[in-house]
Design a binder for these strands. Structure first.
Lengths: 179, 179
DNA sequence: GAAACTATGTCAACAGTGCTGACGTATTTT
DNA sequence: AAAATACGTCAGCACTGTTGACATAGTTTC
């Protein structure tokens, strides 16, 4: 079994005394796991996974973004995206439109079906967040958002800011006239 | 390409107006992705993945926990754990000790090597957290922890609390006299 | 206008991590 | 002695990520 051989078992638990912020490390793990479990269950009904969710989410958030832009947001390779995107297109959740300026580009848009699924996936997550924020003051909520944003790599924080907030503008540099 | 066929592209972005808390949903995605990228890079040097990290983390946090207890914390199957745990044992990061009361059980302990790796993985994460909390008041920090804890499924919150805090007690129900 | 570059798609192979189902062995409980 | 438990293990599968290579349009550059 061991015990006799090689290096001996360390029987003391690591605690915050060791200068590591264990509580938030662990809370992030548990919180994120449960946070993603809500949509995961719905996705299973469609034969989709978490990757589909991400694509669907950002296409709904930034309609008309190109494949390259989507890759840049998700930070995955085009081969990884291809499988997932193809399924979303084949199932009618996303539509590709040839880019108006540059015809090599494929602008990605959600369909009504894709919009509905995105909302269905976001709702339980939003509800969980809402419940977790119950009793929190506006200032506390701000502090939480600030913390999370600072957890993102500095180079990418601008990307987070460029997401449409409240019916405001679109992604920097691209117009978005609705039809 | 589409455009002509079937359902039409929706060109309006979803915004917070739709009653969904998009900002925190997205912040959690980006924050967690970058939060895990630090250890991922180190793990690659060892041929390990994120699953190894989790096992190593909780074995260091709860030394002497049994396989069943570890499965309960991670919420994965024993077959998933087996692969990863075997590698950590074979590489001398974790040691199994036969349970004293019940000899069917295998108590898991980190070795000095396993402890060192766990700390090396936790350090960049802790630093990121520390930096993100810079300028936050004690009250704000409390609000952040509270929020994260409430994001965890209610049934599992007790588990989070049972982790050793500051050199205090061990997991409920098991003594932990150090040698 | 030809050459070079760019945006996208696709084929193939592989790695990591999760799952289910089945079976074996040691040990404890009943 | 029989049943239940803790753990290990074999086999196969799914999802999502990776590299590398190559093809095809379309755009830019000289």
């Amino acid at each position: 079994m061991a015990e006799s051989a090689a290096s001996k078992p360390i029987r003391t638990a690591i605690t915050s005394d060791d200068g590591i912020d264990l509580s938030i490390i662990e809370l992030l793990f548990f919180a994120y796991r449960d946070f993603t479990s809500d949509p995961d269950q719905i996705l299973a009904d469609y034969g989709f996974g978490r990757a589909h969710h991400r694509v669907l989410h950002f296409v709904n958030r930034m309609p008309g973004l190109t494949v390259a832009e989507l890759l840049d947001v998700l930070k995955i390779t085009k081969q990884s995206l291809a499988r997932v995107l193809k399924q979303l297109i084949d199932t009618g959740h996303i539509i590709q439109v040839q880019g108006p300026r540059d015809r090599r580009q494929r602008e990605l848009y959600p369909t009504a079906k894709g919009r509905a699924l995105m909302l269905a996936l976001a709702r339980p997550q939003s509800r969980r967040i809402h419940d977790a924020l119950e009793g929190a003051s506006a200032a506390e909520r701000t502090a939480i958002e600030r913390f999370l944003k600072l957890m993102v790599n500095a180079e990418l924080r601008a990307q987070v800011d460029n997401l449409p907030a409240d019916g405001a503008g679109k992604i920097a540099g691209r117009g978005n006239g609705d039809e």
